[in-house]
């Protein structure tokens, strides 16, 4: 856990706090507690402050102020609390607007699944707000090995979801991705981080090169799966906007031009992400020095 080093803001740690509170105190009290929680992280985690200021300066196109950083941390705390309600199935009164569903359906209706590229922007779990009427079933590909007690807790809350998680790190993880897509399912990756120390490539992102994972796009090319982008951002109290964005019918990496082709697609992903960062800057939840992770204090958890 990163907080042992610097209390750097990781969603695993925040989620644990929120789960504990939400299961005991209910939504109203928890919502009120978001303010002191935000202040606590602001004051106690210089690493979080630095990462937030670094990112916001780029996304806002101006120097980030104290109020911006507080708002950033507050948004994160809100989304994590919402995530608890998504996972526990108590989000019936949330308003979730969905864009791009027709494009998604067009792919799924053809009987093929697809790869969904998400990111640590907003919440992936907002898809669960639909409950049984969810427009899509997504198998999140996750890095699970290090989460320990948190994973156990989430499994208890939503066993069906937990069973659908494909664990990264296993040799046959990507075989399962291939089988799932072939069976018409969607497999989601959080493609803005490389969870496994795998292949990455530096591409321009908000004005400076940052390392992006190659894995999800290589897999999409190998299994010839269509790729959609996914963004689920919080736009207000109990309000989210989900957007599915067509990205590629098929990703072709020519054998001899593999790196150049890969770069093309990763740059496109980074450019889409950049647009969303500028639109909804406070929904970005990578609280470490994204452009220089080695300079971050502590480690990064999910």
């Amino acid at each position: 856990m990163s907080w042992a080093v610097d209390r750097e803001l990781g969603s695993a740690f925040m989620l644990r706090i929120m789960l504990w509170l939400a299961l005991r105190l209910g939504r109203r009290v928890c919502t009120a507690l978001l303010y002191p929680i935000t202040l606590y992280f602001y004051l106690r985690s210089p690493g979080t402050r630095a990462a937030s200021r670094d990112y916001l300066g780029r996304a806002l196109g101006r120097r980030a102020r104290k109020a911006d950083v507080l708002r950033h941390i507050f948004t994160f705390a809100c989304v994590i609390l919402d995530r608890v309600f998504f996972l526990t199935g108590s989000s019936q009164d949330y308003r979730v607007e969905v864009e791009g569903l027709a494009e998604l359906d067009a792919i799924l209706d053809s009987g093929r699944g697809c790869i969904l590229l998400g990111s640590h922007m907003g919440s992936f779990d907002v898809l669960r707000a639909f409950g049984r009427g969810a427009p899509v079933k997504v198998k999140p590909v996750m890095f699970r090995r290090k989460q320990g007690p948190l994973t156990a807790l989430l499994e208890a809350l939503d066993p069906e979801m937990a069973a659908s998680i494909i664990e990264i790190g296993r040799t046959d993880a990507m075989l399962r991705v291939q089988e799932s897509v072939a069976a018409g399912e969607m497999v989601g990756f959080l493609a803005d981080r490389d969870p496994d120390g795998g292949r990455t490539m530096p591409v321009d992102f908000l004005g400076e090169a940052a390392e992006f994972a190659c894995g999800p796009l290589i897999i999409a090319s190998v299994i010839e799966a269509p790729v959609m982008l996914f963004f689920g951002v919080r736009t207000g109290p109990r309000r989210y906007t989900v957007r599915f964005e067509p990205f590629a019918e098929r990703i072709v990496l020519r054998r001899r031009e593999r790196q150049a082709d890969l770069r093309h697609w990763i740059e496109r992903y980074a450019a889409s992400l950049e647009r969303r960062c500028r639109e909804t800057p406070y929904n970005w939840f990578n609280f470490y020095l994204f452009w220089n992770p080695a300079g971050s204090a502590g480690t990064v958890d999910d």
């Binding site: 990507m174 291939q178 795998g198 290589i218 897999i219």
Partner: peptide
């Protein structure tokens, strides 16, 4: 090798 290689290899 990594899990992506495993996938390519199995195909």
């Amino acid at each position: 090798l990594d899990s992506i290689d495993a996938l390519e290899l199995s195909l």
